[in-house]
Structure formats: structure tokens, C-alpha cells
């Protein structure tokens, strides 16, 4: 595991233990995707409102703890600020609020909204003849929402090549309505599709490279493991969906993370 990604996961575990909040397995499944996307985006943590920045929308807002830890790692704010995660009066809620957290472009939480908002951003930038790009990260559970496909259809119709959708294919919906052929569906809806290992930063970055003369939105299916990094999460991801470790469990999870058990 990439050393940065391991450090980010360690922060996720510690902050969740301290605060009693956070969706750890889903945050763990997107760490590499977030690190990769910020690796290709034009952005400046010292100037979150820089007018030439690319834009990122975390559509699966419940991965906020992972998102905050990545933004802190990039230098948007000190990691200590996130210690108040979910506390009364904190800026760092369990879903991100753009008016409270530097680097957050859109406040999210309800699933199925991100692609359409990101498509609107991409359409506006296309109108302005801007080369700025827009990225959004959605979950596979979220892909049960009809608005995901409605928005993709519109984005393809409008030829929004400036829009890139990262699809966190972590198998979270195996107990409800699985989508076994995400890449095929995304392709059928008009996207240029890449399939990558969701825990390989290099592979994801390569898939996110800008394409000259594109005429369609890009979708990157990140085959991921919910809770990647700790075998405890993998053995029972539903029990840990929204659960924080106690101090003894934290010690065990840190040990697992450091032994690279998965």
C-alpha cells in the first residue's frame, strides 16, 4: 500500500475512534481514488478558491471522513482540525458542507445528486470555453438511484468530455440490488470507460489523464474493496458500515493496517 494512503487510513481510524463517527469501510475503499484524482487535478490547497482550479464533487458524501483526511494530507487544513469530526459546532460534519470546509465544492449527502451537479459545472465551463475539468466520485450502492443514469444520459447527450465520473465499485450493494456490469452500463450510457484496480494510484491516475478532442464524459470504474487495508472490515463489512472502533479495536485495526493484511 502506498505510504500516503496508509497514513491517511491511520488518521481515519484514529479520528473515528475519537469522535465515534464515520463510515470507515467506505472511506477506506476510496482513499486511492481520492489521492489519484487530486494528483491529476489542477488545484492549490493554499488557494481553495483559485479561479483556474479543477473541481471535485464527492457524490457519496458519507465518505466524508476519508475525504477530509485526504484534503488535510494535501494541506487544505491541519489534520487536527478534523478531530472535531461530527461534534456540535465543528466544520467537519459527517457529510461535507462546502460553506464550512475549504476544498469542498458541493455539499452532499443524499445519494444520486453528484453527477448531475458536476455535469452542470462541466456544461458551464464548456460554455465559457474553459479547459478546467470536473470530477465526481460515486458509489456503486448509489448507482441504484435513477438520477445517476438520468444525469449520465444528459451528460453524454451534451458531449461533456470535461466530466469524469469515478465509480467506486466496492460491492457494497451485494445484499440488495447489485450492478454486476457497471462498465458495460456506463458504456451503454455513452461514457468512455476505463476499468482499473481501485487501490492502485498509478492505474487510476493513468485513466484520469486528459484526452484531447474527447466528445463524451469519461467513467473510471475503480474495482475496490470496502474496508481495504484491514481484514476485520473485509470479514464483516456490513457490521462496520457505520461503526467506530473502541480503543482495543483501534489497536487491532492499526496492527492490521501496518501488517498489510489485505
Amino acid at each position: 500500500m502506498d505510504a500516503d494512503c496508509k497514513a491517511i487510513r491511520e488518521h481515519i481510524l484514529r479520528i473515528s475512534q475519537r469522535s465515534g463517527h464515520g463510515h470507515i469501510p467506505t472511506s477506506f475503499s476510496v482513499v486511492e481514488a481520492l489521492v489519484a484524482v487530486y494528483g491529476v487535478m489542477r488545484h492549490d490547497p493554499r488557494r481553495p478558491q483559485w479561479e483556474e482550479r479543477d473541481l471535485f464533487v464527492l457524490s457519496k458524501g458519507h465518505a466524508s471522513l476519508g475525504f477530509y483526511c485526504v484534503l488535510a494530507h494535501l494541506g487544505y487544513f491541519p489534520i487536527e482540525a478534523v478531530n472535531a469530526f461530527g461534534a456540535f459546532g465543528s466544520s467537519f460534519g459527517c457529510h461535507p458542507d462546502r460553506k464550512k470546509v475549504p476544498g469542498v465544492e458541493v455539499s452532499t449527502g443524499s445519494l444520486g445528486h453528484g453527477i448531475a451537479v458536476a455535469a452542470g459545472m462541466a456544461l458551464a465551463l464548456k460554455l465559457k470555453r474553459s479547459a478546467r475539468r470536473v470530477f465526481t466520485l460515486i458509489g456503486d450502492g448509489e448507482a441504484n438511484e435513477g438520477t445517476v443514469w438520468e444525469a449520465l444520459s444528459a451528460a453524454a447527450h451534451l458531449k461533456l468530455s470535461g466530466l469524469t465520473v469515478l465509480y467506486d465499485d466496492n460491492g457494497s450493494q451485494i445484499r440488495c440490488q447489485p450492478i454486476p456490469n457497471a462498465a458495460e452500463r456506463l458504456r451503454a450510457f455513452g461514457c468512455v470507460v476505463h476499468e482499473v484496480d481501485g487501490h492502485d494510484v498509478g492505474q487510476i491516475r493513468a485513466a484520469l489523464a486528459p484526452v484531447a478532442g474527447g466528445v463524451a464524459p469519461v467513467a473510471v470504474v475503480c474495482k475496490a474493496i470496502k474496508g481495504f487495508g484491514c481484514r476485520t472490515f473485509r470479514s464483516d463489512m456490513f457490521a462496520w458500515h457505520r461503526r467506530s472502533p473502541n480503543p482495543a479495536e483501534l489497536a487491532q485495526l492499526l496492527e492490521e493496517l501496518n501488517e498489510n493484511s489485505i
Partner: peptide, 14 residues
């Protein structure tokens, strides 16, 4: 739904 969300995204860009 997409109309409204896309309009919000466009408004975010001025």
C-alpha cells in the same frame, strides 16, 4: 431532477 441539479452546477460557476 437532472435539470435542477445541473442548473445548480451551472450557477456554481457564475
Amino acid at each position: 431532477n437532472t435539470l435542477v441539479s445541473m442548473a445548480a452546477g451551472m450557477a456554481s460557476q457564475g
